[in-house]
Amino acid sequence: MNESVTADMSTGANTAKTEQTPTRKRSKKDLLIDILLCAGMILPLLFAIVLKVLNRPAADGIEITGAMIYLTVNLPLQPLYITEAQVNSWAVMATIFFLCLFLTRNLKVRGTGKRQIVAETVVKSCDKLVRENMGDRFASFAPFVAAIMALSALSSLSSLIGLYPPTSDINIVAGWAILVFILITRAKMQGGVLNYLKGFTQPVPFLTPFNILSEFATPISMTFRHFGNILSGVVISTLLASALQWLSGLVLGWIPVFGSVPWLQIGLPAIFSIYFDVLSGVLQAFIFAMLTMMYVCTGFSEEDYNARMAKRAARRAAKAAKAQEK
C-alpha cells in the first residue's frame, strides 16, 4: 500500500516536471476560463438585483411585504407565479454551480493549488460530518447534505447584498422539506414496505392516527423552523431600519439639506444583521442539514440494516448450498 503511494507520488512528481511547459502555454486560456467562471458566479446575483430594482414599485418608506411576483403563467387549473424568491434561489443555485466548477478545475495529485485545498477541505469535512452522524452505510448522502447546506446558507446570506432571501419564503423551504420527507420515507421503506406500514401501529394499534399525524408533522415543523427564523430576522431588521429612518428624521430633520438623508440608517443596521442575517442563516442551514441526517438515519436503524444484511447473506448461502447439492 505504502509502496504504491510513494510510486504514485514519484510519478506525479515526474509528470509535474514534464508538464511544466504545456501548463505555461495553457495559462492564458486557463485565465480566460477562470474569469468566465467568476463572471458566472457573480452575474446571476447581479441579474437578480437588476430585476428587483426594475420591478420595484415606486413607493417611499420601508414596507414589509412578501416576495414580488415577476411573471404569471396562465395554466388551466391555477396560474403559476414566478416570484422573486424563486428567481433568487435560481440565481443562488447558478452561483453555487459555477463556484463548484471554479473550485474543482485542474485537480492534481501533487502540487495542489489553493483552490483544490479549499475544495478538499469542504468535501472532507462534509463527508466526516455525514459519517459521524449517519454512519458509514449512509456515506452516499454526503453530496445531498452538502448541497442542501450550501443552498440554504447562501440563500440566507443573499440578504446581505440586498436580495429578498429565498429562505424567508415558505414555498422554497417547504419544497426542500418535502424532498427530505420523501427521503425519510424511502429510508423507512428500505426495511420492507409491510414493515413500514406496520410501524404505524407500533406501540398500540389505537395510536395509529397519531403516528400518521406525527409523520406529517416532521416536514411541517422543519419548514416552519427554517422559514420562521429567517423571516423573523427580516421583519426585525426591516422594523429597525424604518425606526432608524424615523429617528434620524426626528434628530437631524431640522437641518435644511443635510437632514433629508437618513444618516442613522448607515452602518447601524449592519451590526444587528451580524446576528440576524449571518449567524442565524448559517446556523439554520446547519440545523436543517443535521435534522435531515438524523431523521433519515433513524428511519432505517443500524440493527434493521444488520438484520436485513444477515438475512440476505443467509438466503444467499442457502441458495449456494442448494446449487452445490445439485
Binding site: 415543523s221 423552523r225 420562521g228 446547519f286 443535521m290 435534522l291
Partner: peptide
C-alpha cells in the same frame, strides 16, 4: 455544542409556531 444546537432548534419549534401565527395575524 453541535448536539446542543440541534436540541435547541427542536425546542424552538413551539416558539416558531407562535411567531408564524403572530405574523399571520398581523399581515
Amino acid at each position: 455544542t453541535s448536539t446542543m444546537f440541534v436540541g435547541c432548534a427542536v425546542a424552538e419549534t413551539t416558539g416558531i409556531y407562535a411567531l408564524v401565527i403572530a405574523i399571520l395575524l398581523i399581515f
